[in-house]
Design a binder for these strands. Structure first.
Length: 291
DNA sequence: TGCAGTGTTGCTTC
DNA sequence: CGAAGCAACACTGC
């Protein structure tokens, strides 16, 4: 699932490859309701011949700043990812077709194409999304700040100090895992990394945030940046659908300690990893390493 | 075989 | 008001 490290990986790759290129046209679109605003017709008109000035990330959103007063905002949700592909490869019925397809494009996870933009360098930027939950918007720069205003602080920004972390969780109650995944508290953490962060900090996911000591909070604070930075270095996780813009897998999976390891031995102490439900989601933990 | 599980967000319901 | 449940969609695993 694209959480902060996956979206950050995409952002960095795109800034190296398509910054300064123009979006010439929409090559393919089979699900117009991916575009949430404006209407498809207006979207198509507004996006044509616009240069991509820069790509940024806020929470799990990708922000394409265009050479107009508009920003293209893409949220990949559960199974979406972007692919940068030579435009000589064609799409038919959501699948790549033709001879000599690169191996990466044959990966079934890269075969759910619903939208593709032709770029001025001869490449196409395509969205693959098995569950079609991804959401795309084209909004004014002025409206952008408002649109993003509900998000909490970015955990990897320099100004995300321990004091700021404590401020963000002040007056909150409930399981720490749920708080970490709340985008209005901290931006960008989802189910996988909240489990991994809590394992590294040695804190049980069900612990109530208001009962955590200063020391325990400090451990969680440190683990947030440790785990996220490590995941970015490994170019994200690909347990499920995430692929990078070349269609390649991330390597965080093998560094996982708890997520989706129910019934398997803890890599640190050998105790069997358990799974419980917290806020309707799976939480994985080691009952010995985490207190 | 069929149905619960999978995760993110936003909307609806209580 | 906040918390909980569910829908959006499609595939996997039991």
């Amino acid at each position: 699932m694209p959480e902060l490290p996956e979206v950050e990986t995409i952002k960095r790759d795109l800034n190296k490859s398509i910054k300064g290129k123009k979006i010439l046209e929409i090559l393919y679109c089979d699900t117009k309701n991916l575009i949430k605003e404006p209407s498809f017709k207006e979207f198509e008109r507004e996006i044509k011949n616009k240069e991509i000035k820069e790509i940024k990330r806020r929470a799990k959103n990708l922000l394409f700043y265009l050479s107009s007063d508009k920003v293209l905002l893409i949220h990949l949700k559960l199974t979406g990812h972007l692919l940068l592909v030579d435009s000589k490869y064609k799409i038919k019925n959501s699948k790549w077709t033709g001879d000599n397809l690169p191996e990466e494009l044959k990966d079934p996870r890269n075969q759910f194409i619903h939208l593709s933009f032709l770029l001025s360098d001869g490449n196409q930027l395509a969205l693959s999304d098995l569950r079609k939950f991804a959401a795309i918007r084209l909004i004014d720069k002025e409206s952008l700040a408002n649109y993003l205003s509900e998000y909490g602080p970015e955990p990897l920004e320099k100004d995300f100090t321990f004091e700021k972390f404590k401020e963000a969780i002040k007056n909150r109650k409930g399981p720490i895992k749920k708080i970490l995944m709340d985008q209005s508290v901290i931006a960008g953490i989802g189910n996988i990394y909240s489990d991994e962060i809590l394992f590294e900090s040695g804190i049980l996911p069900a612990r109530d945030v208001k009962d955590l000591s200063e020391k325990e909070l400090k451990r969680i604070y440190n683990s947030i940046s440790n785990v996220l930075k490590k995941a970015i270095k490994l170019r994200g996780e690909s347990i499920s659908d995430f692929r990078d813009i070349k269609g390649r897998l991330g390597r965080f999976d093998r560094e996982r300690f708890v997520y989706r390891r129910e019934g398997k031995p803890c890599k640190k102490c050998g105790t069997i990893i358990e799974r419980i439900k917290i806020g309707g989601r799976s939480a994985h933990f080691c009952p010995k390493c985490q207190k």
